[in-house]
Write a protein that binds this DNA or RNA. Structure first.
Length: 483
DNA sequence: TGAAATGTTGGGGCG
DNA sequence: ACGCCCCAACATTTC
């Protein structure tokens, strides 16, 4: 009789069937398996899903539903506060166990133990699995038992630990559907898609959410991997994997990816090593969030709480919408808006510009990225913004300030990226494309550019902005010394 | 996973 | 031939 009580699998950001430890564990029970997803709009507070992430999630859930249907299983969708809603589902279905991925986000870490306690009272055993990361974040410590705060030794320890990573496991070949399926909301009822207006056209053109899309992206990337080291810094090239949203949503298992990359090339080859260490930055961010749950809100280095930021909504908006008058910044911000994604170097450059040249608090940029990135990830986003701001763990020293003009000439030397996303400047000849304010009036006229009308004047003088940022940093240091 | 300022060196033009 | 200067190229230091 208990044989009919299903094992409930609660999907979170692990929306796949391949190498899905929660699903595998449920299958091993031999009982029917009931996959569920709960959209919790309240618990995350200010970190409620952003617009681009909602679009992605809608399509990823659709893909997961299709894949489960092919196995003869339903996917039950609900919305509501997570612990209570899951418990309702468990009771409606008569579940005997619940399998779920380890919680990483602070609100999930707070919610899951409550769920475990109440489930136990109803005779439901909860099993937590590692579905999203490579490393045991609680256990990995330095020699003296403290938490790593520098990436390089963290990565060294991680590489050592991962030498014995168990191989990924394929989806279970057979799953029994539950005899009784609780009612599911239709996907549209989750209300994840943008409506008036539908701004998702750019996303549709770039991305294919879901496990199949993730696989296709990996297949496309593996031949590029040998050139990754050489091409990865050039945003106009197809030199990176673009797997970040698939990884964020768990549509590809990080263990599968690690395994594929280290077997596709010689494991210790410099190309593979470079890419794998980028995956370890993702681990490092999650590790930092695990040990510092306030990472998204508060500077990791407390000193920066007193940094003399300049709040300026108009400048923030100019940055966000790509109207700063600095072509590489504007092209990048429009790419982010259009595609829901940005090349990592451009994330660093635009972030540096906001935080340093404009002195706007990093949290404001973090919030914009959170809303616009399809790969918006609480840990990576927070850790990276703090890294740029200089307030984070192993951060760039504050005085490392990207000059967007030099970066443009170095990493978009032919101007292909800027021309693609700033059509109003496309006719400018290369020497002036990255710095239209330096162009003679005749050149501007021939390119159909009217500074201040068809394209803005720079909102800040790059040299003056740099000097002001350095002065702000010096002021902070003086405060530190006085304290 | 910076950039700018400052220092050093060496080739070549020129008296 | 020689010293002088200029300055690009590279290296080092500083922010």
């Amino acid at each position: 009789m208990t044989d009919h009580r299903p094992a409930l699998v609660l999907f979170t950001a692990d929306l796949r069937l391949d190498d899905q430890p929660a699903l595998l564990a449920a299958a091993r029970e031999g009982a029917p398996v009931l996959p569920v997803f709960v959209l919790d709009e309240t618990s995350p507070g200010r970190w409620r899903l952003g617009g681009a992430a909602r679009w992605w999630l809608h399509h990823s859930l659709a893909a997961l539903g299709t894949a489960l249907t092919a196995l003869g299983l339903p996917l039950v969708l609900r919305r509501g506060p997570l612990p209570e809603t899951v418990l309702e589902l468990a009771r409606e279905s008569g579940a005997r166990t619940l399998h779920v991925g380890r919680a990483v986000e602070p609100w999930l870490r707070e919610a899951l133990p409550r769920l475990v306690r109440t489930a136990l009272r109803h005779d439901i055993a909860v099993h937590v699995h590692e579905t999203r990361f490579l490393i045991d974040h609680a256990a990995l410590r330095t020699g003296d038992g403290s938490v790593y705060s520098v990436f390089t030794p963290f990565a060294r320890a991680a590489f050592a630990a991962l030498a014995t990573l168990p191989p990924p496991r394929p989806a279970p070949p057979f799953l029994r559907p539950p005899p009784l399926v609780p009612a599911s909301l239709p996907l549209d009822a989750l209300d994840l898609l943008p409506r008036t207006p539908d701004w998702a056209g750019g996303l549709r053109a770039c991305w294919r959410p879901g496990e199949e899309g993730a696989k296709a992206r990996l297949t496309a990337f593996l031949p590029i991997l040998p050139h990754y080291h050489r091409l990865r810094d050039f945003p106009a090239e197809e030199g990176t994997s673009r797997l970040s949203p698939h990884l964020h949503w768990g549509e590809i298992s990080i263990r599968r990816l690690w395994h594929e990359v280290s077997t596709a090339t010689a494991a210790a080859s410099p190309e593979a090593h470079k890419f794998l260490s980028e995956l370890l930055w993702r681990e490092f961010a999650a590790y930092l969030l695990w040990h510092h749950p306030t990472l998204p809100e508060e500077p990791w280095r407390g000193l920066f709480a007193r940094f003399p930021w300049h709040r300026d909504p108009a400048l923030l908006r100019a940055w966000a919408r790509g109207r700063t008058g600095i072509p590489l910044i504007d092209a990048s911000m429009r790419a982010l808006w259009q595609d829901g994604w940005l090349h990592n170097r451009l994330r660093m450059i635009t972030a540096s510009f906001l935080v340093k040249h404009l002195l706007i608090p990093w949290q404001e940029g973090e919030a914009w990225f959170w809303d616009t990135l399809v790969d918006a990830d609480l840990a990576s986003n927070a850790a990276s913004w703090q890294w740029v701001a200089g307030s984070g763990a192993d951060a760039a020293p504050y005085f490392r300030i990207f000059n967007p003009l030099l970066q443009a000439r170095k990493f978009d030397p032919e101007g292909r990226f800027v021309r693609r996303y700033l059509p109003e400047l496309a006719k400018l000849p290369l020497p002036y494309l990255h710095a239209p304010w330096e162009a003679p009036p005749l050149v501007l006229a021939e390119a159909g550019v009217r500074l201040g009308a068809s394209y803005p004047h720079p909102v800040v003088d790059l040299a003056a902005g740099r000097a002001r940022a350095l002065a702000a940093y010096a002021a902070l240091r003086r405060e530190e010394e006085d304290a």
